[in-house]
Simulated scan of single mutants.
Amino acid sequence: MWNASNIALITLRGEDRISFLHNFCTNDIKKLAANSAIEAYITNVRARCLGYVTVFHANDELLLVTNNYKIEDLVNHLDRYIITEDVEISFELNPNCSLLTGNGIEEWLEDEQLTGTLVVNHWFHQSSYWLFGNLSDAQKSSLGSLNDNQVHAARISAGTPLYGEDIREENLAQEVNRNQQAISFTKGCYLGQEPIARIDALGNVHWYLVRVDIQNVNAEPNITLTLDGKPVAKIRSVSSVTHQALAYVKRGTHDSGTSIISDQGELKVL
């Protein structure tokens, strides 16, 4: 269990909430089954990422879970497009939230009676869930605790980005390299769809976010590695536990197993 920090929860209510969000994000919200979750980018007209969210279809609302980077800007972006639609948007920074994960978590959930809302989390290779609500002391004790370093080491090892750390408003959706998880190429029109479809047809993004081994380079978050003065990698999230990082690397060097030589040392794409 991890007492989640820097998390934000955006809630959409109203009869038009599904069709509205469908028109402003990259994944197919209309096909999202009740009590299910998917990843999506919220993009501007140029397909730049204004947000990267997990969308959970609750009974009478949509819950968007994300990092709390520029949440007010994201909510204002969505809110300005509400004209006659029956949609109400609210948000909460740092809600009462726990991340539940670990071996046997599915069985543990079956045996426990939880208070709050359980949302699928996509950060890790193994099953994990956000709980927006309270755990009893006995439940906390039975799960054990994880610290920030452990959680983000596992997240980086799974190749999962965070908005504000690995994705920012200058990034094109396809640069983040999670097309299968976060983009529907068949859903039809939405804000940013035209450049995303054009990129899909031409394949011309210049950078891709990948997981890299940093054992042979002194890599810190947000530094750019260069070779002969030219950028070859842009480091984002870094784990000192696993000596791995998420980094944007140039097209043609993003395949697994590729070694990237820089003046600061050598990276290996995992």
Rank of each mutant, 00 (worst) to 15 (best):
W130C: 01
L9V: 08
E107P: 02
S259E: 13
N134H: 13
T226W: 10
V55W: 00
L225Q: 03
F132V: 02
K140F: 04
F56D: 00
C97V: 09
H57L: 00
S127N: 13
L63H: 14
L131I: 05
V238Q: 06
S262A: 15
L109D: 02
Y208A: 10
T66W: 00
N96C: 08
H77M: 12
V205K: 03
D255C: 08
L227W: 06
I18H: 12
D16S: 07
S128E: 00
N171Q: 04
T242K: 07
Q174N: 07
E112Q: 12
V232M: 10
A197I: 10
H57F: 06
L225P: 01
F24M: 07
L109T: 05
V249C: 11
F124I: 03
K268F: 08
L267C: 06
L93F: 07
S259Y: 13
Y129P: 00
R236L: 04
S239P: 10
S19L: 13
D79F: 05
V87T: 06
S256Y: 08
S256H: 13
I89A: 04
D228P: 01
V212A: 09
D60L: 05
V232C: 08
L246R: 08
K250I: 09
H125S: 13
N6C: 11
I156M: 01
V205N: 03
S19D: 15
F185P: 02
L209Y: 04
D228T: 06
I235L: 11
S136V: 14
T101W: 06
W123C: 00
E85I: 06
L227E: 09
L12M: 11
L202D: 03
S90Q: 12
N177S: 05
M1C: 09
F124T: 02
L9C: 07
A219C: 10
